[in-house]
Amino acid sequence: MGVRAWARWPEVGDGEAPGVPGFVHSGFAPMVVAVAERCLRRRYGAGPVPAGVRTGVVLVSASGDLVSAEHVRATVETGGRVGPLFFFQSVPNSVAGHIAARWGLRGPVVCLSPTGDPYADGAAEADLLRYDGDADEVLLILIEQAPDTPTEAVAVLLGEGAQP
């Protein structure tokens, strides 16, 4: 499977990823959206993806949205009320679905917690989606939040043949 486009966040000159309506408190979803859109724009310009192309999304993260999870944990621990948006955004499929809806992607959405190398696990899932006939190409997004390092994300659009 070839690389049709790729992107990372941050790249030189990037600040914080822009906010995303419906997602609060954490930079996880905004970074996922920013890197995915950057990658898709490099392949398809302003979009959407052409109607005949079935593009799947595979989001790979061992940790998920740690900032939101910690906020919910602390709120519950102190007897506070958890805002309803946290129930929505606590599932990584929600941000992957947001990307699919915004770009008109017509393939499956899968979220993985890797057991080995995150890229290899995600690429293997992308291969399965293409082999099974569920997708013509797959947007693979890798992101990890860690308390002691800045969050970074990578997006790779995989499909038949490499294209710059």
Rank of each mutant, 00 (worst) to 15 (best):
V76F: 07
L66A: 14
V72D: 11
T78A: 15
I99F: 02
S94I: 04
V72C: 11
G97R: 04
G79F: 05
V82S: 03
V76W: 05
S63Q: 15
S68N: 11
V72I: 14
W103R: 00
T75C: 11
H98L: 05
S94M: 09
Q89Y: 03
H98G: 01
S90G: 10
Q89C: 07
A69H: 10
L66H: 05
S61V: 10
G64D: 04
V67M: 06
F88H: 08
G97M: 07
S63M: 15
L85I: 10
F88C: 01
T78K: 15
F87D: 06
V95P: 01
Q89K: 08
S94A: 15
G80M: 13
A96G: 08
G83N: 08
S90V: 05
T78V: 13
A101L: 13
A69C: 13
V72L: 10
I99A: 02
V91P: 00
S61K: 01
S68M: 12
G79P: 06
G83E: 09
V91S: 12
F88K: 04
D65W: 03
E70S: 11
G79S: 10
G104M: 03
E77W: 09
V91D: 12
Q89M: 10
S94T: 15
S63A: 15
A74F: 03
G64F: 04
V95Q: 00
G104H: 02
V91R: 13
R73S: 11
S63Y: 11
F86S: 07
A74C: 11
G80C: 12
E70G: 05
G83L: 08
D65T: 11
G79V: 09
E77P: 02
V91L: 12
R102I: 02
D65K: 12
T78Q: 15
E70C: 06
L85D: 04
A100R: 01
P92E: 14
A74M: 12
V82I: 11
S63T: 15
S94E: 08
H71L: 14
W103S: 01
A62E: 05
P92F: 03
E77T: 12
N93D: 13
E77R: 14
R102P: 00
N93K: 13
I99Y: 00
F87R: 03
S94N: 07
D65P: 07
V95S: 00
S61R: 02
L66W: 06
P92I: 09
A69W: 05
L85V: 12
S61Q: 04
E77G: 13
D65G: 10
F86W: 14
P84F: 06
S94H: 02
A96W: 01
S68V: 14
Q89G: 02
V60A: 03
V72K: 05
V82E: 03
R73G: 09
A74I: 11
S90W: 02
R102F: 01
G97D: 09
V91A: 13
R73Q: 12
